[in-house]
């Protein structure tokens, strides 16, 4: 009985403190600020102050929530909460140094499932809002997720095949090889679309469809969606670092290497976003099923050849 309570406690600690909400939120805001600042500097602007994402979040917390007429109040308000909870729970599974949660066999499957929940929430948010723009954004998001999830899922599954286990800690400790490089490239292909950045910012194309699927959201629920996006950035970059960057025996060094790798990946993705214009949905879909599919096939083939 005691063991159950202590493992429950460590899960709660992982969810609420590290790598969960209490430390992931500031880290996510830092990463958001870094991206916005980098875009601004590349465009020859000064860019936002350091605490800008924090101010945006706090301001939204202090605003009124307008619920459109004819919208189911319960679903409308539950979606952002579910989104933040799922993405934080996914981050709590990632074996970052100092994560108190015990490693489970098969937690890769749980992680991949939890990472789909925020996307599902966005799609539902668009459809629930009864706004025509929100529905177009939801449709685009749903179709795009069918495209970018091919390379994304294959990259992780190929690593699981290589490590011979669906456990995050085994993936992290897998001896470094060719599959790591190929799977990393496949993962990076999917990353810009997962982060909703150019040239795949199709679902949040503010010039075409006013805003993303949270168009009808305001106040604290919108703040939670923004927070969910910030934590998702941390999750995606740190997942990349944990799975594809070789680990050292020293946890503190690992942590620094992981954070640096996360920032480097964000920088690369931001460079791509600044240098490109938005694709159409069909072009993005074709890109992911042709080039993403090719990368996936090569990666899977490499896991079979020893």
């Amino acid at each position: 009985m005691n063991a159950v309570w202590s493992s429950l406690g460590s899960y709660l600690l992982a969810f609420a403190v590290w790598p969960g909400l209490l430390l992931a939120a500031p880290l996510g805001w830092l990463e958001l600020w870094f991206m916005r600042k980098l875009v601004a500097r590349l465009q020859g602007r000064q860019g936002p102050p350091f605490f800008q994402p924090f101010f945006d979040f706090m301001k939204l917390l202090g605003k009124e929530t307008v619920i459109p007429r004819g919208v189911n109040r319960g679903i409308f308000l539950a979606l952002p909460v579910v989104s933040v909870a799922a993405v934080t729970a996914a981050l709590a599974i990632v074996p970052l140094p100092g994560n108190p949660a015990p490693s489970l066999p098969g937690d890769v499957v749980l992680l991949l499932y939890l990472m789909e929940v925020p996307i599902l929430c966005e799609v539902l948010a668009g459809y629930v809002s009864r706004s025509i723009y929100g529905q177009v954004a939801a449709m685009r998001e749903a179709l795009l997720s069918l495209a970018y999830n091919l390379p994304f899922l294959v990259a992780i599954i190929a690593m699981a095949q290589e490590a011979g286990s669906f456990q995050m800690s085994t993936l992290q400790a897998a001896p470094y090889g060719l599959v790591h490089l190929l799977a990393a490239v496949t993962f990076l292909l999917a990353l810009p679309a997962r982060m909703k950045l150019n040239p795949f910012s199709i679902a949040n194309a503010e010039h075409e469809i006013v805003a993303d699927s949270h168009i009808e959201y305001s106040g604290p629920p919108l703040a939670l969606f923004k927070l969910s996006h910030a934590v998702e950035l941390v999750l995606l970059t740190e997942l990349f670092a944990v799975v594809f960057i070789p680990a050292t025996p020293w946890p503190l060094v690992n942590l620094l290497v992981y954070l640096a790798a996360g920032v480097a990946v964000l920088g690369g993705v931001t460079l791509l976003a600044t240098a490109t214009a938005r694709l159409r949905l069909t072009q993005a879909f074709r890109f992911y099923w042709v080039w993403g599919g090719l990368a996936s096939a090569v990666t899977l083939a490499a896991t079979l050849v020893r």
């Binding site: 916005r36 601004a40 465009q43 020859g44 602007r45 000064q46 860019g47 936002p48 102050p49 800008q52 101010f55 945006d56 301001k59 605003k63 307008v66 503010e206 006013v210 805003a211 168009i215 009808e216 959201y217 305001s218 919108l222």
Partner: peptide, 22 residues
């Protein structure tokens, strides 16, 4: 919003929908 005046320094963001505006 251009490099010359860069309102993002003051935290200004242009939004298309009044639901997000202050």
């Amino acid at each position: 919003l251009s490099p010359r005046y860069d309102a993002e320094q003051l935290g200004v963001e242009l939004h298309g929908t009044p639901k997000h505006a202050d």
